[in-house]
Amino acid sequence: MKIFRQLTLLIFISISTYSFAQNSDLGAWYMYFGNNKITKKLNFHNEIQYRNFDGIGDLEQLLIRTGIGYDLTENNNNILLGYGFILSQPYVNGEKSENIEHRIFQQYITKQKLGRVNLQHRYRLEERFLQDDFRMRFRYYLGLNIPVTNKEMLPKTLYISAYNEIFLHADSPVFDRNRVYGALGFVINKNMRIEAGYMNQIQENKNRGQIQIGFYNNIPFTKN
């Protein structure tokens, strides 16, 4: 019964945030993240993000990312080489336009544990091939997960998730954007979890809020 109440609470939050996004100028992001072991050291990253100007239907951006990673130490200190396809449909002078970007990226992730707090640092370098331009960008992400209903991130655990990520251009102006995020999550089992939260993005001295619902899948492709 306790598990049922926890899952019901998270679903209620997800539905509430979806409804709130539909009736405001907030954006909404629906996200899937896969990080699946291929061997003991290698992992396959796969990701789809469907981003809307409103709750659903008015596409802002479709982002597809994939890559192969390698653990320098057991289940930690991961280096990864990846590719991203980004379809953007921004409004320009009230009219929708369409842009396609191809992106190559390299990243390093390291994890730490401080009591109940699970920390993750991600350093990412991106080479961005836009339709009429080429840009390079550096990103630093600091995220944390804190279990609430258990001492560890065990199955059927509610947890708090938060992150801050800064984006820096290789040329001027150096500052691109900053994202701050907070959410409530639920560990479904040892390989799957779900989160519902809110992210605020500062870009060009403008703030924009995003409702986010994310699903995380770590089911390994191998038993070894």
Rank of each mutant, 00 (worst) to 15 (best):
Y108D: 11
T157N: 04
I64E: 03
R124L: 06
L59K: 11
Q112A: 09
D58W: 10
T66A: 02
G34Q: 07
I166C: 13
G69I: 03
D54E: 05
F105S: 13
E74G: 02
Q61Y: 06
R122I: 00
R124I: 00
Q89H: 15
I56M: 14
L168D: 07
Y32F: 03
L59T: 11
H45L: 10
N75P: 08
T157V: 05
P147T: 06
P147I: 11
D58N: 13
R51S: 08
T157Y: 05
L72A: 07
I79Q: 07
Q112M: 13
N35K: 08
E47R: 11
I48A: 08
D58L: 11
N99F: 09
Y140I: 00
L168Y: 08
K41F: 06
Q131Y: 08
K151P: 00
I100K: 10
V148D: 07
D133T: 12
K156E: 11
L42R: 01
E127T: 01
D58K: 13
Y123L: 15
Q131K: 06
P90D: 01
W29G: 02
L168M: 12
L80G: 00
R139Q: 09
Y159E: 06
D71S: 03
P155M: 13
I38K: 01
F138K: 04
G67P: 02
D58C: 04
M153G: 09
N76V: 04
N77P: 07
F33P: 10
I48C: 02
N99C: 05
L168H: 09
I79N: 03
D71T: 00
